[in-house]
């Protein structure tokens, strides 16, 4: 169950970033921001369907990831983002071999459709379209140890941001992710209490939304956020069984994020978040830390280096 949650984490909570597909921030034209981050997510309790439980034969499950991401300002109003995570999982008690590997390559286009001054600040409306595809041949068939669901995805989201001139901002966003079927290593499984004779398993589409409230200045940024995602179809983990990619996974979580610019080009950040409620996912506590670095690809943007739009 982790996995899905993990990919969502990378996509959404990883948000922490000064440049995620679902925040309200745009890179200026000609600037490239490189991000590197490490994330550690751990749970002991999880939800089997809607029933919270633990498994002393599993212990706690830890998912770690290292991700590189780039965000480039094609124009002031159009950014392109590319991300690639390396993921590894392990359990404290289980004898199952820990899994590791390159997960899914992600690409996003972010477009600022509208910007208006008002109420002592600025309103922005943005849209993001994204695609992801598995970047290695990892197995989706060893949950909760698998590093992902090995499904191709496409997503669309809308983002509304208001930033006051003195630095306070609020962002609300919602998105829909379509996910392709995944191919299992074995060729029969139970789906909705029916035995299916196939290795092809449906993976539910997902709707997510989040709200964030923060304060941003040239040298620092701080934020609190809440986000929720829910699978739009799928079945529950069965009694005392392992999760599978067809499960309807859902979670609500809250987090805090802080970023500090050491120089105009180099920023460091950290975030922590906690799953508050869920379905077929782990009750994960996640730590993230990383750094961003700004580069000018197009010299004319120099005077804007480090400026958060």
């Amino acid at each position: 169950m982790r996995h899905f949650y993990l990919s969502m984490f990378l996509l959404l909570s990883g948000t922490a970033l000064a440049q995620s597909p679902n925040d309200g921030i745009m890179m200026p034209q000609g600037q490239l921001c490189i991000l590197g981050q490490y994330s550690n997510s751990k749970w002991e309790d999880y939800w089997q369907g809607e029933t919270k439980r633990s498994n002393i034969n599993l212990g706690s499950l830890t998912t770690q990831s290292a991700m590189l991401m780039g965000n480039y300002g094609i124009t002031k109003n159009l950014n392109v983002m590319l991300g690639l995570p390396y993921v590894w999982t392990s359990a404290s008690v289980s004898y199952i071999t820990p899994q590791k590997g390159i997960q899914d390559l992600m690409v996003f286009l972010k477009y600022q459709a509208f910007e208006m001054e008002g109420l002592g600040g600025a309103f922005k409306l943005q849209a993001t379209g994204g695609l992801s595809t598995p970047a290695s041949n990892y197995t989706p068939d060893l949950l909760p140890f698998s590093i992902g669901l090995h499904s191709k995805t496409a997503s669309l989201r809308a983002i509304l941001n208001y930033t006051a001139n003195f630095g306070l901002y609020v962002t609300a966003q919602g998105g829909h992710t379509w996910r392709s079927n995944t191919t299992l290593d074995h060729n029969s499984y139970i789906f909705n209490n029916e035995l299916i004779y196939s290795d092809e398993m449906p993976v539910p589409n997902v709707f997510d939304y989040s709200a964030r409230l923060g304060f941003i200045k040239p040298r620092y940024q701080a934020e609190v956020w809440y986000e929720s995602f829910t699978g739009l179809s799928g079945d529950d983990i069965r009694y005392n069984e392992a999760p599978q990619a067809s499960n309807k996974m859902a979670a609500a979580q809250a987090g805090v994020f802080a970023k500090y610019f050491v120089t105009k080009r180099l920023g460091i950040f950290a975030a922590v978040s906690q799953v508050l409620s869920g379905r077929n996912v782990g009750e994960a506590l996640t730590w993230t830390a990383g750094a961003t670095y700004f580069l000018d690809i197009n010299k004319k943007g120099t005077e804007e280096v480090g400026k958060q739009d």
């Binding site: 996910r179 789906f191 035995l195 299916i196 092809e200 589409n205």
Partner: peptide, 8 residues
């Protein structure tokens, strides 16, 4: 993308 499994 079909969200029902293949025919048996």
């Amino acid at each position: 993308c079909d969200k029902t499994p293949p025919e048996n």
